[in-house]
Design a protein around this nucleic acid. Structure first.
Lengths: 316, 316
DNA sequence: GTTTATGTTGCTCACCTGAGCATGAGCAGC
DNA sequence: GCTGCTCATGCTCAGGTGAGCAACATAAAC
């Protein structure tokens, strides 16, 4: 009986969804009343036999967003669908697009926006809509200019976002990590750097990404850290970095000594920010995404479907 | 504008399908009238952004069935969905199930049913419902008893289907292919064999499968042909076999000499049958399925989604 | 400036659909 | 055998939704 009903509900679903017949017509075909058909259809939906997917680069997964808001303390969550996606490349592009859209729709429009840098943020900057704000002040919140050609993109990211928002970019003229603590203290004390750091601390919103702890990290690429140093950090429990600071799965700094030589905003400042938007996408960033959300480093998470599910713990 | 509308239609679709909101509610959220929302939704559907899949082992693809009936001359077509399928194994099992269901629902119920043998038909026999007919006569239409242990299943297939239909099985006591033409003529002339062949020729319905032309063929497994012989047949244009007879993509016999040594129903008899049900599933059988349908060897095709699309020529 | 062709918008209406409710069959316990 | 319970069934009714239509805006052509 239950078996017959299941089969019937599938037949009904075929006629309803694939042939666009009305429940009444289906009733005639299957010799059922239209109410029975309605109930079978409801049953098919409830049993999960009907899968509705929105296949579009800019499609979002609202149900996952809701669950994220409810289960974590996030103010907001943006989850892009990964239906029909081919690789991590596209996933990150979609997520960057979504982050750019979110930034443009953010209310109140931030007067001062603190941003980090990296491949993700750079892509976000490319997608930000022209005229997303009027007179915004974009401030870098972690060091990274110079050192090699990659650094150019860090500045470009800030400048592009600022320009598209009819504003100005304030760059942080400092390396991300210094070799000696004294140098770091000295550079932070320098007026030009201190001023930028102070401005960053007062930003009305933050937009940043996170890096996974492996040899593909942007910090390795940029020459700030070696693959060996990363391996050592991983041994100590590091899952990734936020604004250049490596954290473990609970959100704590992994290596205080290294951290003391890192120039930029403190994680506590991010934790206390009213609006901190984290953009994290890709299968390699599940762990760091979890750590960021779990330790309250952001109030808003922009991510992809799989990463969101990992944060929710649905991948077990 | 078209771009804005597209994005809007995606947002609307998300709210409609994922959040189960009414079009009116969506209108309020997106600041649109409910008619505009309705139109956006229709547009999203028409553009193919909404993909509705019925995920169930026994789900069928009615739209493909309809296209098959229209584009080819088939009386009927059964296409099982391959949504969420893991391998060819499961695909064939689903298709066999569907074929069994079709047989049970066939009207008028066949008095005499001619069947071939093979892995596919054997699986169909397992799925046929108890009591699918009352007093059916199941006749083998191509040779294959004895020769090795595999042959046992050929008899079992016929017996099982007959038994479940409260009837008797009539086996064809002959090998599939004989080495010498004289032996074949002699065996065909034998009264016990001739009687079965005559009975098979008068069957009110036929149920058969088809084999691909490669070394995995059942005819190779059974020892009737060697891998080299198959290779030679392929060189001559063979795409597969139906009731032991190898055909090319246009449905013509590839090797008349070999064919003359093959015992069983003639292809022309199948072509003139009022009801000839072909059960063909799996990625390796696309070519033979195409040949069977294209040359009118069956009036009904039971297959899987991918094979059906291949028959329709949608894989180009 | 006027006209015409085209596409968009908001509406009416008829139909489709889901929720809630009354009915009656089937069944276990007394 | 009767009672009370559960559950499937068919119905009423209150929305929800799509087709068709008239009004309107827009833009190209005259």
């Amino acid at each position: 009986m239950a078996d017959t009903d299941e089969l019937l509900s599938i037949r009904a679903a075929e006629l309803y969804y694939e042939e666009n017949k009305t429940q009444d017509e289906i009733g005639t075909v299957l010799r059922l009343t239209r109410w029975k058909v309605g109930r079978l259809l409801a049953q098919a939906k409830a049993s999960g036999f009907i899968r509705i997917e929105i296949v579009h680069p800019r499609a979002r997964r609202l149900s996952i967003e809701r669950r994220l808001r409810e289960k974590t303390g996030l103010t907001d969550a943006i989850v892009v669908s990964s239906a029909g996606v081919t690789g991590d490349e596209e996933l990150q592009s979609r997520t960057a697009q979504a982050a750019a859209d979110y930034l443009a729709a953010l209310r109140p429009v931030p007067r001062t926006l603190g941003i980090s840098w990296g491949r993700t943020l750079h892509e976000v900057s490319l997608h930000v809509a022209q005229g997303w704000a009027t007179g915004v002040n974009v401030v870098q919140i972690n060091g990274g200019v110079s050192l090699n050609r990659r650094a150019g993109t860090a500045a470009a990211t800030a400048v592009t976002i600022a320009h598209k928002g009819s504003g100005a970019a304030t760059l942080l003229p400092s390396p991300a990590i210094l070799e000696h603590l004294e140098t770091k203290n000295a550079i932070e004390a320098d007026r030009s750097v201190a001023a930028v750091l102070n401005l960053g601390a007062t930003a009305s919103a933050y937009l940043f990404s996170a890096g996974q702890a492996d040899q593909n990290s942007a910090l390795v690429d940029s020459g700030y850290l070696t693959a060996e140093q990363i391996a050592e950090l991983v041994r100590k429990g590091a899952v990734g970095d936020v604004v250049g600071r490596y954290i473990d799965s609970t959100g704590n700094i992994v290596d205080p000594e290294l951290d003391s030589r890192t120039v930029g905003i403190q994680l506590e400042q991010l934790r206390h920010a009213k609006t901190a938007v984290a953009v994290i996408a890709g299968s390699s960033k599940h762990a760091i995404a979890r750590a960021v959300v779990g330790s309250g480093l952001c109030t808003v998470l922009v991510t992809d479907e799989e990463t969101a599910l990992a944060v929710l713990g649905d991948d077990s």
